[in-house]
């Protein structure tokens, strides 16, 4: 999908990253690690939770071809 806006301002690197899917994938990974730690410490996490996180990660991973 091509660029959809026409604003001429040069954005800061922070502004760039906020609009980028890679940090979102990082957040998802952090959520997975947190849930994994909870799971290892005795909290029951059912299989659909990591499975859903995983398919969302797979979808985000393909965002570069957007």
């Amino acid at each position: 999908m091509g660029d959809l806006s026409t604003s001429p301002a040069a954005p800061s690197p922070a502004r760039r990253w906020v609009a980028d899917p890679l940090p979102l994938l990082g957040l998802l990974a952090v959520a997975g690690v947190t849930l994994g730690i909870l799971h290892l410490s005795g909290t029951a996490i059912p299989w659909p939770v990591p499975a859903l996180l995983a398919v969302v990660a797979a979808g985000l991973a393909l965002s570069g071809s957007t």
Partner: peptide, 28 residues
């Protein structure tokens, strides 16, 4: 949130995104 050059910026680290996604998905 996007600004002009969004796709160019994304394409600069696309392979990182693709590979990270694979690792995260495989582990989960």
């Amino acid at each position: 949130l996007g600004r002009p050059g969004w796709q160019h910026f994304l394409s600069s680290h696309t392979r990182w995104l693709e590979r990270s996604g694979t690792v995260v998905a495989t582990v989960l």
